[in-house]
Design a binder for these strands. Structure first.
Lengths: 130, 130
DNA sequence: AAATATGTATTAAGCCCTTAGTACACCTCT
DNA sequence: AGAGGTGTACTAAGGGCTTAATACATATTT
């Protein structure tokens, strides 16, 4: 468990986002046990209450579930998992289109830019902070 | 002047973002006079101090300039204007790539999604709030 | 039984952003 | 000279998010 936090979004939102990514890609499998609130807080160096808030929202959204006071687990509902992935993708696509259209970047140019930067992107990211 | 504000980013950040878009696309021309702090606040229904904060940061970044106590103007520095456009584009591209890679969307699929949604995007946006 | 770990809940404080109200110096226009 | 608009600056209050410090019931482990 490792999250690169930025300073503009609330931490609990970024935690939820990270879990959604893990669920959408299958790195978190259905029914898989996840860290307790306190353990997650320790791992991420955040406050237990912040972890609790993230978990609470995820539980309300059906992303995770908790039986009794056992460690929470990833949902087994395939339709939710599928919806999460589609939500993330749609969000990324719409956000990108809105951005490039707001600065009048034509479709061809936008596609070309993505193509040119996709492969070696992870490498470049090492220099990016915040 | 019309900005659709969201609730997650600080208002003065969104104002700056809007000005950058206008500058990058040439809708704000070099040397063009811009609304005073108070007038902008009136137009956008925000507090004059928030407008002041946005203008102050833009002045520090060289996006606008102020001579005496005359209304501020858009920079005439072509290199800054070019840099703004490139910054916005790079930001959009990197953000998009980071998003799709985090959920393992292959390049081909990502490009196809952008292509499929680019044309009719402005229409769909009418239903989107917040 | 005792200790530990779990989920859950409450209260308080601090920080950032926004809003609000005010103030001052400067310039332009009447 | 006076009025109005400009940039600029300051203090104060409120809201949302985070952090902090506890607290409690339950289940598991020792």
């Amino acid at each position: 468990m490792n999250i690169k936090f930025n300073n503009r979004d609330p931490v609990y939102i970024q935690v939820i986002r990270h879990f959604k990514e893990q669920i959408a890609t299958g790195r978190f499998e259905p029914g898989q046990e996840i860290p307790s609130r306190r353990e997650l807080a320790n791992q991420l160096k955040i406050n237990p209450n912040t972890a609790q808030r993230a978990y609470k929202e995820m539980e309300e959204q059906g992303l995770i579930y908790t039986e009794g006071n056992l460690p929470s687990r990833i949902t087994k509902d395939a339709s939710i998992i599928k919806a999460v992935r589609e939500e993330l993708i749609l969000e990324a696509v719409n956000s990108f289109i809105a951005s490039v259209q707001s600065i009048n970047v034509p479709l061809d140019e936008a596609l070309q830019l993505v193509k040119n930067n996709y492969e070696n992107f992870t490498v470049e990211q090492e220099d990016i902070h915040d």
